[in-house]
Design a binder for these strands. Sequence first.
DNA 1: AACGGGCGCAACCGCCTCGAT
DNA 2: TATCGAGGCGGTTGCGCCCGT
Length: 329
Amino acid sequence: MGRPPCCDKVGVKKGPWTPEEDILLVSYIQEHGPGNWRGVPTNTGLLRCSKSCRLRWTNYLRPGIKRGNFTEHEEKMIIHLQALLGNRWAAIASYLPQRTDNDIKNYWNTHLRRKLSKLQTGTSDGVSRDSYSSSSSSTSQQAISRGQWERKLQTDIQMAKKALCDALSPEKESRLSDLKPSNCYLGCPKPGHASSYISSTENIAKLLKGWMRNSPKPAAPAHSAATQCSLNVAGADSASSEGTQSKSEGFSIELTETFESLFESFDSSNSDFSQSMSPEATLFQDEDKKVSIQQGQLSLLEKWLFDDGANQGKDYLSDITLDETANFL
DNA sequence: AACGGGCGCAACCGCCTCGAT
DNA sequence: TATCGAGGCGGTTGCGCCCGT
């Protein structure tokens, strides 16, 4: 038998989260930043296991999460990325920074899979199921090139990360370990960088107000909370100007600006590339910019995905990714 | 108005990976 | 090198809502 579940304790609460629990969690993360999930239940008094807290945060409370209907653009991205990467939802989610892997997985399972199977059985010119299934059903050649491309992409990301670390001064390098997506979603600060989340207890109160306002619908409050959360984060700049700015906040802003300027200068010369980058790169960009970019022209990746001559596109992407990464760094 | 089936989504479960010791 | 534990990830479940009958 496997390891006993981490939540297999007496007194650990399960099921839907209440607004009060959300507030506890959000205010804790506001203060300490995400991470050290083991300590979250004990420090907050939440009767939840650490995993549950992490999941609640990453899938629901985390700032920058876009909720609601998937756009046609997102849908196509998911379909093509699923065809490329298989059911690697986290990887797919990295190309849709505002969506969680859980959301994408759910959307795939409930909408797209059905849609695609309909297309398969329906029209003769519909999308073949094989072309959207995982590599097991693809031709061996496709599977190989897909794998090669993916490895290449991962290498590119690693290289970019390393280069970023190298590019910055040594004293900052140690801090860059905090830029891992796991604890730095969409520019969320490390512990002590509270103001980038929800600036103050005042905002927690607003959060609560949102829940109260939408109280008739049980699901709605949490949604509004997430929205509120995002709004507050979006307004983090003004929030931080109101409150007391700690040194760490200063660093957070400084670092963000450093990356923003890095990507900004690159964006102006090749916005396509920046759009096709994984969140590991784009998470440093500010939210508004991300939105405007997403609404903009097709990304390089997308162009490639939609390109009938996929092989040609793969080569192009690989070359550009490597070359441009080196250039902008 | 009541009921039942389908759907959507939040949350859980268990395995895997990776870093620390 | 082996072991352990925290975190990550994908599959699955359960519940509430919606819609058709």
